Computed example of a mutant assay.
Amino acid sequence: MAANFSQGLTIGDLADRTGLAVSAIRFYETHGIVHPVRNAGGHRRYGRHDLRRLSFAMAAQRLGFALGKIAELLADLPDHKAPTKRDWTRISNGFRADIEARIAALEDMRDKLDGCIGCGCLSLKSCQLYNPADVKGEEGPGPRNLVITTD
């Protein structure tokens, strides 16, 4: 059955158009990604703009962005109208800086990893990836946590 856009999309219509489960749409709603209105019967109705917001959120998550960050960026946009090209450009510029930082961190890790491939032990005092300057030895015997962040 075709959606009646003048009355808004039902949650089922939105699920069909986005490929998301109804429960996922409700989850996104609780995080402020979409903002349905209620009709006279109390049923959720979504606008076409919600298709764009959900699609954007799904794409951003695939790029590794946390839902909280996505919701934070979308919170600055109008709830019940389609974001403009200018809005998306501003958001994408923020994402671009984050992606560039991730690329730099990955390149740094790759370059340090190249120095360890020859020995394979990763525990030498000179290991630049896991234990630069053998600082982990001061924390006691045994392996230590490796946490690589891009923040």
Rank of each mutant, 00 (worst) to 15 (best):
I70E: 06
F56C: 07
P83A: 07
N93C: 14
I33D: 00
I70H: 07
I91V: 08
K125F: 11
D111I: 01
R90E: 04
R52D: 14
A105T: 07
D111Y: 00
D76A: 12
D87E: 08
L77Y: 02
A66C: 07
G94C: 00
D50P: 07
R102Y: 01
E100K: 14
D108L: 12
L77N: 09
R62T: 05
I99R: 10
C116W: 00
G118Q: 13
A66L: 08
I117Y: 09
E72V: 06
W88N: 07
L122N: 07
P132F: 02
C121I: 10
V135E: 12
C127N: 00
Q61G: 04
G41W: 09
G118A: 13
A104K: 14
E107F: 04
K85W: 14
R38L: 04
K69T: 15
K125V: 01
K85D: 13
R52N: 13
L106E: 09
I117K: 13
N39D: 15
I99A: 11
H35M: 04
R53M: 12
N39V: 08
T30W: 02
E138W: 01
G32D: 06
L77T: 01
G42K: 05
N39G: 00
R44V: 00
K69L: 15
R102Q: 00
P83K: 00
R45S: 04
E107P: 01
R90L: 10
T89D: 13
Q61K: 13
R110M: 07
I117E: 04
L122R: 11
M109P: 01
N131L: 09
A66R: 13
D87Q: 05
V37W: 09
C121F: 06
E100D: 15
R52S: 15
A40C: 05
G41T: 05
K112A: 10
G64M: 02
F95A: 11
G47S: 05
A105C: 08
G94A: 01
K69P: 04
D114I: 14
L51R: 03
A101E: 03
K85T: 15
A40M: 03
F65I: 09
W88R: 01
C127K: 03
R45K: 02
R45W: 08
L73N: 05
E29M: 02
R45Q: 05
N93M: 15
G42C: 10
I103C: 07
V37P: 04
R53H: 02
R110C: 06
D114Y: 13
L122Y: 14
A75I: 08
E29H: 06
A40R: 09
G120C: 08
L63S: 00
G120P: 06
D111W: 01
R45D: 03
A75C: 08
D79G: 05
I91W: 03
R53E: 09
V135C: 08
M109I: 11
D111R: 11
P83W: 06
I91K: 09
E72K: 10
H35R: 08
Y130S: 13
G94L: 14
S92C: 12
L51V: 02
R86Y: 12
D50L: 08
I103T: 00
L122G: 03
L77Q: 03
L54E: 07
R96V: 06
A57C: 10
S126M: 09
L74Y: 00
H43S: 00
H49W: 11
S123D: 15
R45A: 05
R62K: 14
G41F: 05
L74S: 04
R86E: 15
C127Y: 07
D111H: 06
T89N: 10
H31Q: 12
V37Y: 11
R52C: 13
L51H: 08
L124V: 14
